[in-house]
Structure formats: C-alpha cells, structure tokens
C-alpha cells in the first residue's frame, strides 16, 4: 500500500450544541448539520466548513490547529477531545459535539478555559518562588538533565481543560484544583529552583480541594491528549503529603 488518499465517501451528521448567551432569543438546543467527509477531515476542518458554508454564527475556538495551544477542547461523542486532532474517520456517522463542562460557556462550543487556568495559576502560585534576583552576568545555575526532563514531562500540559472536564470530581466541586491544577503543583514541587518548603506544599495539597478531592476516577489520565502521567502525579503528591506530615511529627 502506498497511501490513503480517500476514505469511504460518507455523509456525516453533526449534532451540535447551540446557545448564544449574548442573544436574548437564544435557548440551549441541539442543531444538526450534514457534511460530506473529505480525506483527513478533522473536527477543525469540519466545523470551519460548517461555519463558512452553512451557519456563520457557529462559535468555537481553534488557534494552533496542531494540538499544541489547547484552545479547542470540546465534548466529541461524550469524550473531551481536542477538536483539531480528532479525525472524523475515527468517528461514527453521527458526531455529537458539546462544549466542555465545568468551564463557563461563551457560546455554542466555545468555553472560557483561559480564566479558569489563570485562576488556577494564581491559586497554586504557579511560578518559581526564589529569593535571589536574577544576575545577568552569572552563568546559569546548573541542573541535572534528568531533573530537567522530569520537570518538562509535567510542564507539557497545554491547559486544554479536557482532563478537568472529564473528571467527575471536578464537575461537582468547583473549588477542586483538578487534574491540571494538581499537575501544576507537582511541576513546581519537584523543581529544585522553587524554594517553597514541603510544609508550604502540604497546605495546598492536603485537603478536599487539593489531591484528596481526587477520588481516583482516572478519566483525566485516559483523556489527556498530551498523555501526561497524571496518576503518577497524584501518587507523588499523596506520598509527599504523608511524608511531610510524618517528618514534622518526628
């Protein structure tokens, strides 16, 4: 075989959630669109096609269309997915699209993940806490490459919100840091440049809005389009909470 140039010519049916809060006449409902499948068609291509040829008022978010910016999280047939990297060829003839839950709805498929993530960064103080100011004349502080690689692994989160939307606990407890939030905590907790102590982290992590808000549903881990090792993150944080509580007692 050389290459697939075409796929079975299917007619796809998109059932899309519609609601424009800015329009007093709009009420939440589902709207159906039909589209012929083209080769390599993704939800990104399909939605643009629908907007440009069928209903120009359709709202959705894409920026990079390359699975790196995290703009395009949406529920595709009940599963939070990045629209840009979801191929219609992997989906049945009927494709149901909903906005991500948890996040504030902007309109149709568009939700406000930006505000959620900014608040999460503020809440977890997701930046390096260092006493010393940057010295432009000094050589960089050394870091072991394995440590750098481990931090990078958790730094890869693109804040798409798919994990948060997939997490039952996050859906019912709006103060829960959520998978991406816990991941952010772990990312800084393991960074030797960050001077926050175990005791500082203990307070952030050891409660129902922190890692104990997680009830081990594991959807986050299965859904994360960047395949972040989220379950390992929770294990790491739980063990860290336990050990820091024990060491203080001892």
């Amino acid at each position: 075989m050389t290459a697939k140039t075409t796929q079975a010519g299917r007619r796809l049916r998109f059932e899309i959630f519609r609601y424009n809060p800015e329009d007093p006449e709009s009420t939440p409902h589902m709207q159906t669109f039909e589209l012929d499948e083209t080769p390599y068609m993704s939800i990104f291509i399909a939605l643009n096609e629908i907007r440009e040829k069928q209903d120009p008022s359709l709202q959705f978010d894409f920026a990079c269309r390359a699975a790196i910016c995290g703009s395009c999280g949406m529920m595709v047939n009940g599963r939070p997915s990045l629209g840009c990297r979801t191929l219609t060829s992997d989906l049945p003839d009927v494709i149901k699209l909903h906005p991500l839950p948890v996040f504030k709805l902007i309109g149709d498929l568009s939700v406000d993940t930006g505000t959620w993530f900014r608040e999460m960064v503020e809440k977890t103080e997701g930046w390096i806490h260092a006493q010393e100011a940057f010295d432009p004349d000094a050589q960089e502080t050394r870091m072991d490459d394995d440590t750098a690689a481990a931090i990078y692994e958790n730094d890869r989160c693109i804040e798409c919100g798919c994990c948060v939307a997939s997490c039952g606990a996050a859906n019912v407890n709006e103060d829960f840091l959520g998978p991406a939030g816990l991941n952010r905590v772990a990312r800084f907790a393991m960074d030797p440049r960050d001077e926050r102590s175990d005791a500082d982290w203990f307070e952030v992590v050891s409660n129902q809005d922190g890692v104990f808000g997680c009830i081990g549903l594991m959807a986050c881990h299965d859904i994360c389009p960047k395949e972040l090792p989220l379950l390992e993150v929770y294990g790491y944080l739980r063990r860290k909470a336990l050990s820091s509580a024990m060491s203080k007692r001892g």
Binding site: Q7, A8, R10, M75, N77, G78, R79, S81, T86, L87, S89, D90, L91, P92, P101, S166, G168, N171, L217, A219, D222, I223, P225
Partner: peptide
C-alpha cells in the same frame, strides 16, 4: 459524564485508524 466516557469508542467505525484515541 461517566456513561458518556464509557460509551465513547464502543461503536464500530470501519475507517478508524489504529491510533484512534476513542477508547
């Protein structure tokens, strides 16, 4: 939510690639 996640990917799609994320 849980039902949706559990259903997702159960439908047979002949054109699905071996890499389909829908499990």
């Amino acid at each position: 939510l849980s039902k949706g996640l559990n259903r997702s990917g159960r439908e047979k799609v002949p054109s699905a690639s071996q890499f389909s994320p829908f499990h």
